[in-house]
Design a protein around this nucleic acid. Structure first.
Lengths: 244, 244
DNA sequence: TTTAAATGTCTATTGATATAGACAACCATA
DNA sequence: TATGGTTGTCTATATCAATAGACATTTAAA
């Protein structure tokens, strides 16, 4: 695991770097044999830091619910997960990861109306200032938050989409009700950045965590844009898979 | 710009968080009108920190060559870039970003032979332990490093690929010489993580930076796997675009 | 029941991080 | 050339991060 050295004086505390590395190792399955993290003294030796620094890192992971320390026994792994999230013409939140978890759910956080910005108008191929419906949603897998998304829909076609989504919990079903039987992904842009304050709260992340940002455009079968969305995923919980 | 608050006591120093945010703003074009970063006193006010903290952040960006402070005038933006990197059936390094930069180049860092691990054998659909050629390359755009990649090729078909690549600097050309006129991207997996020590060196990153990791499988026109690669991109320099 | 191994807690010290204030040096321009 | 706005440098102080060591507490196994 500890093949790479820890960096000092980088503005990122050692305990945080180590916590990130241990989290990655856990997700990679490095400790699956024992189901436990190596002893603090051994980790301290491996990373070349003091045991107290290791303890800070493990405390952060315990705070995330990833490990649980038991005095006298060791530090047990409580949870590990990295969902594979396919991106294709028919990308939908629940379908793609449905076989990897027991339950997927989508929760409406907020909704509103707004005028199309220059950028949104360009993407959705409508005039600047045209009315849009904005949906902010939280995607969950087995009751754990995976992504938070903001979506925009042209209000003239989808003025009632918020209400329908609130009831059905599904964009796909809401589209069907509003006369869009099917839709396809036109383009997806993927970037990565540090989690901001809202990410931390909504996705239950630890500060300094990484989020994968996917900006996506969906269109109906006549190739008319119907939805533009910006989704933010906890990077340590998902993996994007692009099938060609 | 400073819509989001910065977080304290997270293990990530304020100056590093602020540096990351300013870098993002620069890349986003927020300061294109003036070509300068706002004055230190104003940034200190916006972020709610001391001016010295802002100076630490700007010093880090100056170290990266992104800004240059001029006493009496202000802090000038030297460089901004975020290349858009298309991912499709015909994903190749140089073609995709060729129209965004003046020059793309690919440099061979190292090469070697190794036996196929279980995972590599599964991906390339060969037997475990079969001989592979490993290529480690550095992708550059306008003389700035963009990605570092490790690729594996079945040695029975592509035993000489390292030598040909060294001469031509192109995987596509090397494949052609070895009887593969064309190839397609089968699948791409995208994750994000913190930069490790090698990333920092090869990609000239600042510590704490983020890398986008793309694991890709290419196959020839008969759908026989020819290349498996793991590429690491500086997250603040690229954006992946998935066209469907 | 003893012992080894693991986590938990405490004190002390050093260096990095962040704040606060003052003033110097430099540039553009009125 | 005088002035306002900007970056550069210095001192001082408080808090966080990291190291170091000692010892307590708990668990599992000898």
């Amino acid at each position: 695991m500890a093949g790479q050295k820890i960096q000092r004086q980088t503005g990122v505390a050692l305990w945080r770097q180590i916590a990130d590395r241990i989290r990655t190792s856990i997700n990679h399955g490095d400790f699956d044999e024992t189901g436990m993290v190596p002893p603090e003294t051994m980790l301290a030796l491996q990373f070349g830091v003091n045991r107290h620094t290791i303890r800070s890192a493990l405390a952060a992971l315990a705070q995330e619910g990833i490990v649980r320390a038991v005095q006298g026994r060791g530090t047990l792994i409580e949870r590990k997960e990295r969902l594979s999230f396919p991106i294709s013409k028919r990308t939908r939140f629940s379908q793609g990861i449905g076989d990897q978890v027991r339950e997927t759910r989508s929760v409406l956080l907020a909704t509103g109306e707004e005028a199309a910005s220059v950028e949104l108008a360009r993407q959705l191929k409508i005039r600047t200032g045209a009315p849009l419906v904005r949906l902010e949603t939280l995607g969950q897998a087995d009751h754990r938050p995976v992504s938070r998304a903001t979506s925009w829909f042209p209000a003239d076609r989808f003025g009632d989409i918020a209400e329908i989504y609130r009831i059905t919990g599904s964009i796909t079903k809401a589209f069907k009700e509003l006369g869009v039987p099917d839709y396809v992904r036109v383009v997806t842009e993927i970037t990565a950045t540090h989690a901001d304050e809202s990410d931390l709260a909504d996705l239950q992340l630890s500060p300094g965590a990484i989020v994968l940002v996917a900006q996506a455009l969906n269109a109906d079968l006549d190739n008319v844009p119907v939805q533009y969305s910006i989704s933010r995923f906890a990077a340590d919980r998902v993996r994007f898979t692009v099938e060609n």
